[in-house]
């Protein structure tokens, strides 16, 4: 078998029979495609697949990285189910996800609708501006928002004071800290999602909006009856990616409360599942228990991906 470029014309193959055969050059040419795809498979196996499978193995042990390890079967999972810290982290993760995803996607939908206007001036400037948060790192984002939300001299509390309210200690309370972290997540991703929606919107024929406008449909009606239905597949996609991203929120709760340590406060009021995983694995060196948390997170991601798959197939079949 010789390597040919597709589509391989028969004449070419027969006119140079075995051109690369039995020569050193020939072997190199024949192996070239495998060499080109090899880096991915090698790196994915060593740093992706193997560690993932190994997580399931480590989760069955009481595993101290510098001490001993004992096989404990499913004891880590049994402990997890009865661990209030785990359920607290589950609640925090879900609450932060909900508080960030819903407003984020709604605002992105609205802004995409506005950006899609055919006569919009400075369109590139608007598009670039909404993407600025995306190139800002999560660490920097958290530092600046922690300052804006500060109890004593944060700008937000200054506004609250002007409006006649007393200062809120955002980091100390459950809802305050969740609201704060959700704001950071939403700030970073709204513009990105806006551009995804805008790209899908641009595939909708302009004539559809124009015809609706001529028929007297106002902006809201166009949004409700043209924009939203056209965007349904990409909306499902963004919900799924923000859910999978939401399960892995880590940097915000770690940095948002400088005195909170690895628990995001004494009451673990904003410790997410990934931060709990880090605390157990790398803070307390309970590798087995940490791996068990990772397995639970993995199962949750698989569930989300499966629901996504079912939704997408349903949308496709509805369209037929």
């Amino acid at each position: 078998m010789t390597i040919t470029l597709s589509p391989a014309p028969a004449a070419e193959a027969t006119s140079r029979p075995g051109r690369y055969r039995h020569t050193q050059q020939g072997w190199r040419e024949r192996l070239a495609p495998y060499a080109y795809v090899a880096p991915f498979f090698l790196l994915f196996f060593v740093f992706g697949l193997f560690p993932l499978l190994f997580t399931f193995y480590v989760a069955l042990f009481d595993w101290d990285p510098i001490g001993e390890r004992h096989f404990v079967g499913l004891a880590n999972f049994a402990q997890l189910v009865h661990d209030p810290r785990f359920w607290g982290a589950m609640r925090n993760t879900f609450s932060i996800w909900l508080l960030s995803t819903v407003p984020q996607l709604l605002i992105a939908l609205g802004v995409a609708h506005l950006l899609n206007h055919v006569r919009l001036r400075a369109a590139t400037l608007f598009r670039m501006s909404v993407l600025v948060p995306y190139v800002t790192s999560v660490a920097a984002t958290t530092i600046v928002f922690a300052q804006l939300f500060d109890r004593d001299y944060g700008m937000l509390n200054w506004f609250l004071e002007l409006l006649g309210f007393s200062h809120v200690d955002f980091t100390a309370s459950v809802w305050g800290s969740h609201f704060m972290i959700a704001t950071m997540v939403a700030w970073r991703w709204t513009g990105y999602n806006t551009l995804l929606y805008l790209a899908s919107l641009q595939a909708v024929p302009r004539a559809l909006f124009e015809a609706a406008a001529v028929d007297g449909a106002n902006g809201w009606q166009q949004f409700r009856h043209i924009t939203v239905p056209a965007l349904r597949p990409i909306i499902v996609f963004t919900v799924v990616t923000s859910t999978i991203g939401g399960l892995q929120i880590f940097t915000e709760p770690l940095l948002v409360n400088p005195v909170g340590g690895l628990t995001c406060g004494a009451a673990r009021q904003c410790q997410t599942l990934t931060l709990f995983l880090y605390e157990q694995g790398f803070g307390r060196f309970h590798f087995g228990y940490g791996a068990a948390i990772a397995v639970v997170l993995f199962v949750m991601v698989v569930i989300v991906a499966t629901i996504n798959y079912l939704l997408v197939t349903r949308i496709r079949s509805e369209r037929r």
Partner: peptide, 27 residues
């Protein structure tokens, strides 16, 4: 390029996109 196993290997590449390997930080 045409090579034996190309389609299978590509399918594997696509499938790995669904694997959240970043959760395996401990191993």
């Amino acid at each position: 390029l045409h090579f034996r196993g190309r389609n299978t290997l590509f399918l594997v590449v696509v499938l790995t996109m669904t694997v959240p390997a970043q959760l395996a930080i401990i191993p």
